[in-house]
């Protein structure tokens, strides 16, 4: 695993920003779970709790003209990309003001303006799309990169292998971000993958440079990903980053969680990425405890506003059922 970047080199405002973003994702999802229990959020709700360091370590390294695409566990990716928490929460609640107009739900957040190209809920399905966005970038002779998130389960889909081959063959600007949280729903990665829990070797036959990092260490993610992006931007082809992680809660709210024992969960929770970063910052004298408290208060306010906005927003009008099935003919 790559070594942790020295926290000393971090500017204070960057440290605060990292902390704030991770905490925002955490608190946003805790609120979403409450809303789910209250029946305001329905369908599938997959939380990212425990994995926040990956999105927050990775996505802010991108430029505005870069692209982010990923799977249905997408709240963290969306928020780290700057999608408005209000619009995201309204989407979870199926409201017209949601970032997908209430038509996508938790699994399908979109914000084209922010180049957030979607949460995608067919396992592996976003990988070919990422290839296409990268191909478009290349044909337009731009130097944007495409960051594509997927889970350890997606690696066993054919689309993953097709995408890896084409990205390498055509030297496409893709950062493959594997979030290995050791489970695909209830199936332990050791029971789904020949070769076991460590996956980054899968990139080798495709000649894609690959590295494995501790995805619970936001500084490690930040350092490795920023190097990866720089390499991809040179135009030499994709890179592959495997971030080892653990999801603290169930696969979705429907998960009875009887496939892993409590000890394992507790052991991993003791490595909480937000706690770790907080402690490291305090220890290094990077931020004062009062700064962190202030940041946490701000986060709570943002989440509260998002919830209120979502609750008060109108549902989609009935005629919305029939809009945007096809594109408007004018825009060409």
């Amino acid at each position: 695993m790559a070594t942790t970047l020295n926290i000393e080199t971090l500017a204070k405002e960057d440290a605060l920003e990292i902390f704030t973003q991770m905490l925002l994702i955490r608190r946003f999802e805790e609120e979403a779970e409450r809303l789910y229990r209250r029946g305001l959020v329905r369908g599938f709700l997959h939380t990212y709790i425990g994995e926040e360091a990956i999105a927050v370590g990775a996505i802010p390294n991108l430029r505005e003209d870069d692209y982010v695409i990923g799977h249905y566990r997408d709240h963290g990716h969306a928020l780290a990309r700057g999608v408005d928490p209000k619009a995201a929460m309204a989407e979870l609640c199926g409201k017209a003001t949601g970032c997908s107009g209430g038509k996508g739900g938790s699994m399908h957040l979109f914000d084209a303006e922010k180049h957030f190209m979607g949460g995608h809920a067919i396992v592996g399905g976003q990988l070919p799309l990422a290839i296409g966005i990268a191909l478009g970038v290349k044909l337009k002779e731009l130097d944007s990169v495409v960051m594509c998130f997927f889970g350890d389960g997606a690696v066993n889909e054919g689309e993953f292998h097709e995408a890896m081959n084409m990205a390498s063959l055509w030297k496409l600007p893709v950062v493959f971000m594997l979030e290995n949280n050791l489970y695909g729903m209830g199936t332990d990665v050791n029971r789904s993958r020949a070769g076991g829990a460590s996956i980054y070797g899968a990139a080798e036959p495709y000649m894609i440079p690959a590295v494995q990092i501790d995805g619970m260490d936001v500084m490690a993610v930040r350092e490795t990903v920023s190097e990866g992006i720089a390499k991809v931007r040179e135009g030499t082809g994709p890179v592959f980053i495997e971030a080892m992680a653990y999801r603290f809660h169930g696969h979705s709210m429907a998960d009875p969680s009887n496939y892993r024992d409590n000890e394992e969960v507790q052991e991993n929770r003791s490595r909480d990425p937000i706690d770790k970063f907080r402690e490291d910052c305090l220890e290094a004298g990077k931020i004062e405890a009062t700064d962190l408290e202030l940041a946490a208060e701000k986060v709570d306010l943002v989440v509260q506003e998002a919830r209120e906005f979502a609750e008060q927003s109108p549902e989609p009008a009935p005629e919305e059922l029939y809009t945007h099935i096809y594109a408007d003919p004018e825009e060409n």
Partner: peptide, 19 residues
């Protein structure tokens, strides 16, 4: 390559950004 899923998907992805 003989990879219908990814080359059709690559068509979709490139169309998403205006090709």
């Amino acid at each position: 390559p003989i990879s219908e899923s990814v080359f059709v998907g690559a068509g979709v992805g490139s169309a998403m950004i205006g090709m």
